[in-house]
Computed example of a mutant assay.
Amino acid sequence: MTCFSCMFRRKRTSCQHHDQLNEDIPGIEGVNIYTYKELKIATDDFSAANKVGEGGFGSVYRGMLKDGTVVAIKVLSSESKQGVGEFLTEIKVISGIIHENLVKLYGCCAEEPHRILVYNYLENNSISQTLLGSNRGNIQFNWRARVKICIGVARGLAFLHEEVHPHVLHRDIKASNILLDKDLTPKISDFGLAKLLPSNVTHVSTRVAGTLGYLAPEYATRGQVTKKSDVYSYGVLLLEIVTGRCNTNTRLPFEDRFLLERTWAIYEHGDLKHIIDSSLTDDLDAEEACRFLKVGLLCTQDAMKLRPSMSTVIMMLTGEKDVDLEKITKPGIISNFMDLKVGSKKKADQTNRSLIISSILENSPLSSENTTSASMTFTAISE
């Protein structure tokens, strides 16, 4: 039986298999590897009391390591079929991606059948639980704080898209994947995890990685994934941050349920100020907030080619590029594919998707955050 505790602990060199294992498995140097027992103790046996989140990639627990370090421990979906070597190679890549607006990966556990990631713990949780949820506590999300969050997320995503090589597509940008540190600096989580789930680059038939409400039309209906799919998701997030409401709320009248659709309608009437979060008062720059809403609409345009790159988004948000010079076309809104406007797919497939989406919405009274596990299958994933 392989000695995993020796294999993965760089400081432990007494095991006779250590040198050989380092040669056999590439990319483990520089990656902290934890035993399953360590993480089990750190989370009090992965108790429900320590569970702080759950999404398409797995469950997240708050834990404390032996040295007193508080960490976030993500237990990946058991669907992963990767071998230890392949898994560690991907982890090596992810751990090397470092940016102020990205969550830092400390290490992992790869004891069969477990695949677990260990991140730094962010004190102020996610935007979905604070800004958009009922757990704001004493956090003051004034306009300056929201500007910092919007621009920070854009910078982190631009880094993944344009500076990391090979480029990284996130595939699940949403409020619950934007974490906040003690200074409300945003940190994007879950980047690079799509490769840790079972897939085949030439033919994919698996659950969509994204979340209903943030999904670009081409991704939701054809499974086509590009940087512009991430841009679309960011645009929805941007609207959420400025308006202070979730992208989907089925408790509202039908015409107000979908934030993107509502924002577009208000934009057409030339009155964007009315959708800005009413809780924003003293430091609100209404003109800047309207500019951010316009950027959100540019990011969510139905045609992929019309959406800006993330570096262009940053210039628009910071005022380096004039948003008003850009023509904003109709966004790809959720009702487009709820009404079965999904291109050339077969009618049976259209009906199945419509039923799935309708069922999900009925079971999600407030936010699309709960719809991560939508059982849709696609076959055309592309860069």
Rank of each mutant, 00 (worst) to 15 (best):
V93S: 14
I276K: 13
M7G: 15
L184I: 10
K81Q: 11
E86A: 10
D324E: 14
V93H: 09
V147S: 01
N120Y: 11
G296H: 05
S229P: 04
N22Q: 10
T281F: 07
H165Q: 15
V71H: 03
Y106C: 09
K227G: 02
T250C: 10
A110K: 02
R115T: 08
Q301M: 14
L212N: 02
D19V: 13
K294M: 14
R222W: 03
T13D: 08
L88R: 10
G27C: 09
E369L: 09
A216Y: 06
I188G: 03
P113C: 11
D285N: 15
S95V: 01
G210Q: 02
P186G: 05
L117V: 11
N177C: 14
F292D: 00
D302S: 09
L293N: 01
T185F: 00
I98G: 00
K148A: 04
E255N: 14
T329N: 08
P308N: 05
T211D: 07
Y214A: 00
K294E: 11
N124H: 15
E38M: 12
L157H: 06
T379W: 01
A110Y: 11
D324W: 01
V71N: 02
G343R: 07
F46P: 03
Y119V: 12
F8R: 10
I139P: 06
R10Q: 11
A374I: 13
L297C: 03
G319Q: 07
K227V: 08
R146E: 04
R144C: 03
G192E: 05
V323Y: 08
L293K: 12
L317S: 09
E90A: 14
L293S: 06
R291Y: 04
Q140H: 11
K11I: 07
R155T: 04
G223L: 03
V342Q: 12
Q20N: 09
H167G: 13
E79D: 07
A380R: 13
L132G: 14
I149G: 09
K66L: 12
R307M: 04
R136V: 12
R146C: 03
V313G: 06
R136Y: 01
K195L: 00
G332T: 10
L102P: 10
P26S: 10
L252R: 02
N22W: 15
I360T: 10
S335L: 11
V201P: 02
V313C: 15
V168N: 11
V71Q: 11
V323T: 01
L252I: 01
L293I: 14
L297K: 03
I127M: 14
R144E: 14
I97H: 05
R291M: 08
C6R: 01
L366W: 06
K182C: 02
I275Y: 07
G223F: 03
T329L: 12
L102E: 05
F57A: 07
L280K: 12
L180K: 04
F191R: 07
I178G: 04
S354C: 13
L215V: 08
C246F: 00
S95N: 08
M64K: 12
E90T: 09
S205H: 11
A49M: 06
D339I: 00
F337I: 06
R245V: 15
E383N: 13
I33G: 10
V52R: 03
F4M: 13
Y121I: 04
C109W: 01
T263G: 07
K305T: 06
D339M: 08
M315Y: 03
G156T: 11
V118A: 09
C290E: 15
P217R: 05
D172N: 15
L76I: 02
K174T: 04
I116Q: 08
T35K: 08
L117D: 03
L196R: 02
